[in-house]
Amino acid sequence: LQNPEIAANWVNCLIRIRDHRDESAFIEVFQHFAPRVKSFLMKSGADAALAEECVQEVMATVWHKARLFDPERASVSTWIFTIARNKKIDVLRKHKRPEPEDLPWGPEAEPDQAEVLGLQQESEHLSVAIAALPDTQRELIEKAYYGDLSHSEIAAQTGLPLGTIKSRIRLALERLRRSMETS
């Protein structure tokens, strides 16, 4: 199911969008990510109609901001996640997200292909590692990203003490880091 070439293919689509305004590349990206972004927004509290409205804007942002995508620092799914997350804050929490100051880039260098491939492969490994987590740990991480749940709210929902939740999340993150190192 998972394959390092998949992530590289999404990078390719983004470059076709950026350099050639290629609609077929856009449709390919849309068909894979729109249903996932919709799911993310609905699990974050949007109804289906609002979620689709946001999906349109998220995907249009992908098209219009393609030149800002940096394949040395993020996979396409990571980049789309950050756009969807910011849309969620804007629409559901009703404020703009303050962004950190941009790093001072030197004169624009061509991305290093080995760096790009390395990062895209690591992103795939991360996906595989998440899928392999025990259910309880995976669900907690998903709740943190989807469910608008703070650690203490997660504790209230599951009846588990807060300390346990925190150490579970930390444990899950450590397991992820370790599986990234060995893969």
Binding site: V37, T78, I80, F81, L126, S127, I130, Y145, Y146
Partner: peptide, 21 residues
């Protein structure tokens, strides 16, 4: 953020209408 991307990648897809595309 990469973890968030991986969570999105792993989430079950829900159907999106033709009108959305």
């Amino acid at each position: 953020d990469a973890l968030g991307g991986a969570v999105i990648e792993n989430t079950e897809a829900v159907e999106v209408s033709e009108a959305c595309l």
